[in-house]
C-alpha cells in the first residue's frame, strides 16, 4: 500500500491536523508520502519530513499553490495521486474543498470524514449529523478520503527523517483567482485542537455578554471558545467559532456548554468530547442527555461563581 497525504499548512507551518491524517494512514498501513503544495513552503516540507512515520515528502512549490485554490491543487493531487493506493487529507475546509475535485479528476468515488479504519478499503463514517455510523467499503482502485482529525490521535511531530523531493507544478488552471482573506486572530488555542472548549449559545443573550461571561472562564482554563449556530446566526461571535454538523467538529477532554439547548446539529459537533458539562436554566434541555454533569441555573451567576472557584 502506498498512501499520499495532502499536507495542510499556511506556507509557513504544518497544520496539526496533518498529524492526525498521518495517524489514520498508519492504521491503513503502508508507505506514507506527504505532499506539500504551496508557495515558499520549504519550511513546511522540512517539518513534514520530521513527522513520525512519513517516508517521503513531495514539495510542489509554485505561486499558483499559495492560497490552496482547489482548481490548481486538485489538478496537482490528481496528477501525482495516480500512483497511490490511498489519497488522504484532513476534513478541514481546505481538505473538503480540494479532495472531491481531485477524486472526480481521477474518476473515483470519495469517502468523507472517516472516523475509523476497519481494513485497507473499509472505513467508518458518521451520517445523518452523527446519528448513525456507516461502515463503507470502497471498490475503487484508489481510495480517496478525508479524515476526521478528532477521531485519530496525532502522531509525533518529531522523530522522522524523510527525504524531501521537489515535484513539478501543474500550473494555473486559469479559472480562479485569489482575491483576499480575512483571518480571525485569536490568542486562544485552536478550537479543533484544544484540550478544553467553552461554548456559548443563544442563552448568553448578546455578543457583549458572551465575552463578559465566557472570556474569564476560557482564560482560567486555557480553553478555546466555541459557539452554537444560534449564537453565530444572532451575530454574537464570528462563524468560525461554530461547533456542529455545519461548523467544526471537536472532541476535547472537557466541553463546557453554556446556554446551549443542544440541537441535533450542535450535538453532531461535540458529542465525542470526553467529558461534557452543561450549564443551562432549562431542566429539560436536550443537552443534558449527553452531558456528564449538568447544572441548572442562570449562567450569568453560575459561570462567574465557577470562575472564582477554579
Amino acid at each position: 500500500m502506498s498512501i499520499l497525504v495532502i499536507a495542510e499548512h499556511d506556507n509557513k507551518a504544518l497544520n496539526g491536523a496533518t498529524l492526525n491524517v498521518v495517524a489514520a494512514a498508519q492504521k491503513i498501513g503502508g508507505d506514507i508520502t506527504v505532499l506539500v503544495a504551496g508557495a515558499g513552503a520549504q519550511a513546511v516540507a522540512d517539518q513534514a519530513a520530521k513527522v513520525a512515520g512519513v517516508s517521503k515528502v513531495l514539495l510542489a512549490d509554485d505561486a499558483v499553490y499559495a492560497n490552496q485554490l482547489a482548481e490548481n491543487v486538485a489538478k496537482l493531487v490528481a496528477s501525482i495521486g495516480v500512483g497511490y493506493s490511498h489519497i488522504l487529507a484532513a476534513s478541514t475546509t481546505t481538505g473538503k474543498n480540494v479532495l472531491p475535485r481531485a477524486a472526480a479528476l481521477l474518476d473515483v468515488s470519495m469517502i468523507t470524514d472517516i472516523i475509523a479504519v476497519e481494513g485497507p478499503k473499509t472505513f467508518k463514517r458518521p451520517i445523518y449529523a452523527g446519528n448513525a455510523i456507516a461502515t463503507v467499503e470502497s471498490g475503487e482502485s484508489i481510495v480517496v478520503a478525508t479524515v476526521r482529525g478528532t477521531a485519530f490521535d496525532a502522531v509525533a511531530a518529531e522523530g522522522g527523517s524523510a527525504a524531501v523531493e521537489a515535484v513539478a507544478s501543474q500550473g494555473d488552471a486559469g479559472i480562479s483567482k485569489f482575491v483576499s482573506e480575512e483571518i480571525v486572530k485569536s490568542e486562544r488555542p485552536e478550537l479543533t485542537a484544544a484540550r478544553i472548549v467553552v461554548s456559548g449559545g443563544r442563552g448568553v443573550a448578546s455578543g457583549e455578554n458572551y465575552h463578559k461571561v465566557l472570556d474569564p472562564l476560557a482564560d482560567k482554563l486555557g480553553a478555546a471558545q466555541g459557539a452554537s449556530r444560534a449564537a453565530v446566526d444572532a451575530g454574537f461571535v464570528p462563524n468560525d467559532m461554530q461547533v456542529g454538523q455545519t461548523g467544526k467538529i471537536v472532541a476535547p477532554e472537557l466541553y463546557i456548554a453554556v446556554g446551549i439547548s443542544g440541537a441535533i446539529q450542535h450535538l453532531a459537533g461535540m458529542k465525542d468530547s470526553k467529558v461534557i458539562v452543561a450549564i443551562n436554566k432549562d431542566e429539560e434541555a436536550p443537552i443534558n442527555a449527553v452531558a456528564d454533569y449538568w447544572l441548572v441555573g442562570d449562567l450569568n451567576t453560575v459561570v462567574p461563581e465557577l470562575v472564582s472557584k477554579l
Binding site: V108, T122, P126, I127, A134, V136, I276, D292, Y293
Partner: peptide, 18 residues
C-alpha cells in the same frame, strides 16, 4: 463503487448526573 456494509447507532454516552 462505495458499498455501505452496515449502519449502526452511535455509541451511547453513559448517563450523566445533575
Amino acid at each position: 463503487k462505495l458499498k455501505t456494509v452496515k449502519v449502526e447507532a452511535p455509541a451511547e454516552r453513559k448517563a450523566g448526573v445533575q
